[in-house]
Simulated assay, not measured.
Amino acid sequence: MPTIKIPPVLRSSTGGEREIAVDGESVREVLEALAARHPATRNQLFGEDGELNRYVNVYLNDEDVRVLKGLETPVAADDTVVILPAMAGGALAPHARH
């Protein structure tokens, strides 16, 4: 059963779980299974069009799924799917400025 690694920013939506094993044969099926189990993650992962939100990066065994077959990338039982929200910003925190 594939394992999804949950980033800290999504853990409040998964009851604090860091890793979740779900059924699925593609990245889409695995993420849909996560969203079915933890509905609060759906809007964080998917846009209204059913595709990944542009600020969400998903990796299958350290490979960005966008350079593979996207959400249709096949997933094996021993695979790991990692969700990484893109980081944004650029301004330093006030205490970090010199």
Rank of each mutant, 00 (worst) to 15 (best):
P94F: 12
L84H: 04
A88S: 15
V27H: 05
L71D: 09
A86Y: 04
T73V: 01
G70S: 09
V65M: 07
R11C: 02
V27R: 03
P39W: 01
A91T: 04
T73S: 08
S26E: 02
V27A: 11
V56Q: 10
S26R: 03
V82H: 12
A21V: 09
R37K: 15
D79C: 10
G16H: 12
D64R: 04
L68G: 04
E51H: 08
A88Q: 12
G24H: 06
P94C: 10
D49E: 11
A96M: 15
V81N: 00
I83W: 01
L31N: 00
N61Y: 08
V22M: 05
K5G: 01
E19F: 04
Y55R: 11
T14P: 01
R37S: 11
D62H: 14
G24M: 02
R54K: 13
V65C: 07
S13M: 12
M87Q: 13
A35K: 03
G15L: 05
Q44A: 15
P7I: 07
V58P: 02
L68C: 09
A93R: 13
A96R: 14
E63S: 12
A91R: 13
A91F: 11
R54N: 13
A86M: 13
V30P: 00
A88T: 15
A86V: 11
R28K: 09
M87D: 02
L10T: 07
G15D: 06
V27E: 03
P7C: 08
A21G: 10
D79N: 14
L31I: 00
H98T: 11
E48A: 12
A40C: 05
V9K: 09
R42F: 01
S12V: 14
G47Y: 03
A88G: 15
Y59G: 03
A93S: 13
N57A: 07
T73H: 03
Y59Q: 06
R66P: 05
P74A: 06
G16W: 09
K5I: 10
H98Q: 12
G50V: 06
G24Q: 03
D49T: 07
S13K: 14
A33W: 00
L52C: 09
V56R: 02
D49N: 14
G24A: 06
P74W: 05
I20F: 01
H38M: 09
P74C: 06
Y55I: 09
V82K: 07
D62G: 04
V58Q: 00
T73M: 01
A96N: 12
E48Y: 04
E32L: 08
D62K: 13
R37N: 04
L60F: 08
A40R: 14
A76G: 14
V56E: 07
P7A: 05
D78T: 13
R97G: 11
I83H: 02
A76W: 09
V65N: 07
H98L: 13
M1T: 08
L34D: 01
V67L: 10
